[in-house]
Structure formats: C-alpha cells, structure tokens
C-alpha cells in the first residue's frame, strides 16, 4: 500500500508535484496516468526516496521507504530502462543488486527466466535493445519478491508478446495481494490492465477512481447515424441541448439524444436510417477529456501546421 499526503516537489520555481493525496491499494493494479510533465515519474521517485519531497510525505507498506529493513523486499521499482551500468552484463547487474539483500543467486536465475532474458543474460547491457532493457528493469524490480511494485512505463519498447506478458504479470501480482502502481501512455493497454486509475495533471490529482467510473464520467450519449438525408434529419433533431456534427457526407454524430429517441423521430418523419449506433466512450476518450486543460506540452494544431507548410 502506498499513501501520499500533501506530497509536494519543487524544482526551483517550478512545481512538479503539487500537494497530492492518494492511496494505492493492495490487490489491485492501479494505473498512473497523466500528460508528459504531469509529475508521475517525480512522484514515483519520491516514493522510493530517490527525490526528497519539498513538503508532505509518502509511506509505503506502513513506513517511509528508507525505514524498511529490507527495501527491495518491500518495493520493486522500474524507473526507466537506463538504471544499469552499460559495461556490466544483465546477470552481473542482478547479482550485484541481489547481494545487497543477500538474495540467493537462484532467485537471480528465476527472474532471468521469468523475464525471458536467458539468451542475453551474459551479454553487456550496453548492447541491449529498448525492450531487453525493459525486461531487465522488470527482472530487477521482481528480484526481492516485493509486496509493492512501481513500474514506470514498463511496456515502453516491448513487442506485442511482451506487452501481453506484462499485462498478465501485473494482474497476477495484484491477485496475490500485492500493490501494483503502473504508468503508461497506452490507454487501450491500461484499460485492459488496470482496476483503478489515478490521473495527474500539472502536478495535481485530477481523477482517482475505478476504470469503470472514469469511463462513465466521459460518456456523453454520443450516437452515430448514417443516412442519405443528413440535412433533413439534422433539421428534424435540432434543439437547444443537442449538438449535431456532420462527420462524413452521410454520417452525423449526435450528442444529447438517445438511440431510441433518434430512431423513433426519424421513423415518424419517414427518414430512412442506414446505421444507428450508440458510441461508447473509451478510457482514452475519458482521459483526453480529463486532461484537455492540463497538457503541459501540447503539439501544434496539425491543420494550421499544414497551412504554414504550404
């Protein structure tokens, strides 16, 4: 379990994390989302004492991280793939890490097998691909068989098989009663993996709820209608609280009316419909809606960029 209380981090005049409160429960996979620069990595670093909070506190499994007698058995952390000396082999890196807690070499072999690193374990880490580096980072996080796992973008650079493996692994670890905190920018993957979501934006918690609740919050009753008579249908349905967008020549997207209402009215006016679909929100939609005002580094509008280029 991870408990943060008014956790704050300033870098000079910039506030990276702004008095956040949250609890990460054991037995669940908790997704940690937010735009670049939202403070996710900084928060994760503060949990394991790599960065010192400017104010507030964070405790893991009941104590500040540095007060634990066996830190690697409490928390396994993957911060980024580059927390390894490039001149050392994966096997020797894990052996050096294991030695600090007198973890037997048999466990080193176990995590190497578990992460599929057997064939490259004796090679120097400098030559590793991004995916291999991630696997090594996950192996190091699992070394102490820890009660809490903190994984910063673990699927970054992994092949589809690896992505699926991380999903199964994290779910299994959570099912064993462990605390799993996971960040990722892949929303579809997060929707499949996480039970609970914490969204950060500009250093603040902007959502902390179950995946179902987060998605429900973004549901807007959007209905997609395909009809050859778009103009007639649009004028028929036009009213104050309804927005109608003409997506394609024969497709309308309608907010504010249910599928039943649209179907009944169209039938009454004898307008033929070729498609009538309720568009359900995805985690990605919900996330975009939540963070639309919180994005620190926004990409330029592609439309204007194209015009400038011209």
């Amino acid at each position: 379990m991870i408990q943060a209380q008014s956790l704050t981090k300033h870098y000079g005049s910039k506030t990276a994390v702004d008095a956040v409160d949250f609890t990460v429960q054991p037995g669940k996979v908790t997704g940690f989302l937010g735009p670049n620069g939202a403070g996710k990595s900084t928060t994760m670093r503060m949990i394991v004492g790599l960065d010192r909070p400017s104010a507030g506190s964070v405790i893991v499994n009941g104590k500040p991280y540095h007060e634990h007698k066996a830190p690697l058995r409490e928390v396994g952390v993957l911060l980024d793939a580059k927390a390894v000396h490039t001149g050392r082999s994966a096997y020797n890196h894990l052996r050096a890490m294991a030695a600090t807690h007198s973890i037997p070499t048999s466990r080193v072999h176990e995590v190497i097998n578990l992460t599929g690193l057997e064939s490259v374990a004796k090679k120097r880490v400098g030559g590793f691909s991004l995916g291999m580096g991630q696997r090594l980072g996950i192996a190091a996080a699992l070394l102490g068989d820890p009660a809490t796992l903190i994984l910063d973008e673990p699927v970054n650079g992994l092949d589809p098989e690896g992505v699926q493996w991380v999903r199964k692994l994290t779910k299994q670890l959570a099912a064993e009663g462990r605390t799993v905190l996971l960040s990722s920018h892949l929303m579809s993957e997060m929707a499949l993996t996480a039970d609970h979501i914490i969204v950060l934006g500009r250093g603040r918690v902007i959502a902390d709820a179950s995946v179902a609740d987060i998605i429900a919050s973004a549901a807007q009753n959007t209905v997609r209608v395909r009809t050859p008579h778009t103009a007639a249908l649009a004028s028929l349905l036009a009213q104050a609280d309804v927005t109608i967008t003409n997506l394609e020549q024969d497709v309308l997207e309608i907010n504010g009316l249910t599928v039943n209402e649209i179907g009944d009215r169209a039938a009454a006016a004898q307008i033929s419909l070729h498609e009538l679909t309720a568009v359900s929100a995805s985690l990605e939609d919900a996330y975009m809606k939540l963070t639309q005002d919180e994005v620190e580094y926004r990409t330029g509008d592609t439309h204007t960029e194209a015009e400038v280029a011209r």
Partner: peptide, 14 residues
C-alpha cells in the same frame, strides 16, 4: 479471498 495484502519475507539489507 486471495486479495489479502502480500507479506514479504526473506533476508534484508546488511
């Protein structure tokens, strides 16, 4: 039922 918090075991830092 399996979702009781996991308790870590084993040797510590020395």
């Amino acid at each position: 039922g399996a979702r009781t918090p996991f308790v870590p075991t084993g040797s510590g830092l020395s």
